[in-house]
Structure formats: structure tokens, C-alpha cells
Simulated assay, not measured.
Amino acid sequence: MSEPTTLLQAKQLSVIRGNRTLVDRADLTVHAGEIVTLIGPNGAGKTTLVRALLGLMSFNSGELVQQPGLRIGYMPQKLHIDPSLPLTVKRFLALGGSKLNAITDALSRTGAHHLLEQHLQALSGGETQRVLLARALLRNPQLLVLDEPVQGVDVAGQAALYTLINELRHELGCGVLLISHDLHLVMANTDTVVCLNGHVCCQGHPSQVTVDPAYLELFGHRAEAHIALYTHHHDHAHDECGELHHDHKDHPPHA
């Protein structure tokens, strides 16, 4: 089987501002068709690292490699719209020059086609996130970068959004880099977890990371509670090194 395409790779990436190291020698790789979830507490440097990966801010040392011509769809953490500005979803999504048929197709993919004529200010948290995800899809991305995609969404809506993201990566064959400080639900919808707290504490398949001493020390009782919730439904098995084996007859799924 051929090796998966590497879309983005950071090697020993550091971001320093003033006398403060925000991200220290981080390694991170995203392949096509893979969901990589970056987790960590508030202030861990997650958004800083992602902004450096996207070229939105400079890094001080290390190496960043992108697939040539890589198309990235970015979903920001928050949408700041002046409440006095009358802006419909259709007009908002057309700001980048997208045509109506592309807009309606993207909204349909995210289950938000009925919001086309709605004003942005009238949307719920879940509806806003689906519109922002549709905006990211308008670039026909090879890589989706989603910064806290379920922020402001209730628990049921969070589960639905993570399921949708999982479906989109299979449908589009794109890689997904997902940033979150939550542990539940995230673990069941990802292939690789990168735990960041200024530096990369640990990374690997969720079943490996959730028993890593660095992870347990960082998240404490929250980690233990969420390990119990973690179930990873997949059509492959992992050996002791975390390598994938798609013939899983002799390898029951992790629970």
C-alpha cells in the first residue's frame, strides 16, 4: 500500500515573542485523509502554532514543509461581525467571490442550506459554526484547519459537528487539523492526537496518548474521566507501535 500524501509538516518549530517562548520545538504532520487533533489547556499555544503553520505569523526556528500548491480551508475560532451590519449568509459567503451554486453546495454539505437568506446575527452557535465550515469548504480544500469548531455549541450539536467533519474528510479525501481543548468526543473522531503545552508533551493514536504519563499529568482527573468515554470505531487495528493493519479479523477494535 502506498504511503499517504504528506500535506503539512512542522519540524522543531518554535515561536518566540519578546522573552517568552510560546511554542517550543514542535513537531506535527498531517497526511491526506487523516484527522489530527491538537489538544491542550487554554494558553498552551495551540492557536499560535496553527497560525504559524498557516503563515499568518512568523516562526523563529525550525522548518515548515507544505505540499506545493496546497489548498487550505480555514475555520476560525470566532466570527466577529458588527451587529449593526445587515449581512445574510449568502452575502457573507459571496464576499470571497464564490458563485451562488458553489455557496448552496457548500451549505448543503454542512446541513445549513436552509440558512442561505438568514442574517448572521440571528444564527445559533451551531448554525454559525456550520456556516463557517461551509466557508472553509468553498476553497475545495486539500487540508481543513478548524480552530475550536464546536465553540458555543451544545453537547448534542458538538457530536453532530464532529461526525460531519469525519464524513467530510472521507468524502473529500482531505486532511483535517482540528484544534480543541476538549477531550470528550474529540478522541473518538481522530486518528492522531498531539498534546501541546508550550511544547509537544506526547502524540500518537488516541489509545496511546490517553495512557501516556504526560497526558495524564496535564489533564489529571479530567483525563481519567474522558478515557472512560473514549470509543474509537474504525475498520483497522493497531499493532504495539501504533501502525495500522486494515485486515483486523484477529484484532478487535479498541474500546
Score class of each variant (00 low, 15 high):
V176I: 13
C174D: 01
G175R: 02
L164T: 06
L168M: 00
Y162A: 13
A156T: 13
L161V: 00
T163I: 01
Q151T: 14
I165H: 03
L177M: 03
Q151W: 07
V150N: 04
G152T: 13
E171I: 08
L168Y: 02
N166Q: 11
V150I: 11
L146P: 09
G173E: 13
D154M: 04
V153K: 12
A156K: 10
D154S: 05
N166M: 01
A156C: 02
L172I: 09
Y162P: 00
V150H: 04
P149L: 04
V153R: 05
V150L: 02
V150K: 06
L178S: 13
I179G: 02
R169P: 11
I165L: 12
G175H: 07
Q151D: 12
G152E: 12
H181W: 08
R169I: 10
Q151R: 07
S180A: 12
C174M: 14
L177H: 12
L178M: 07
I179K: 03
A159P: 00
L161I: 09
Q158H: 02
L146Q: 11
H181K: 00
I165M: 03
H181T: 08
L183T: 13
I179Q: 02
V153F: 08
D182E: 15
S180Q: 03
L164I: 06
N166R: 12
L168P: 06
I165W: 05
V155S: 11
D147V: 00
G157D: 12
G152M: 06
H170A: 15
L164F: 00
G173I: 05
A160E: 12
L164G: 02
L164M: 11
S180R: 01
D154R: 05
N166V: 01
E171F: 02
G173S: 11
G173N: 10
E148W: 05
H170Q: 14
G175A: 11
Q151Y: 03
L168R: 08
N166Y: 04
Y162M: 14
V155P: 00
I179H: 01
I179A: 10
G173L: 15
V155K: 13
L146T: 01
I179V: 10
R169K: 15
Q158E: 10
P149W: 12
L177I: 03
L177Y: 08
R169W: 07
V150G: 09
Q158R: 05
G173M: 05
S180P: 00
D147E: 02
G152P: 01
D147R: 08
E167K: 13
L168D: 05
G152F: 03
D154Y: 13
S180I: 01
A160F: 03
D154C: 08
V176M: 09
I165Q: 06
E171L: 04
P149F: 15
R169H: 09
T163A: 13
P149C: 05
E167D: 11
V150D: 07
D182Y: 13
I179D: 06
H170D: 14
L177Q: 08
T163Y: 00
V150S: 10
P149V: 07
I165R: 02
P149I: 08
L164D: 03
G157S: 12
C174H: 14
D147C: 08
L168N: 00
A156P: 02
E148V: 00
N166L: 02
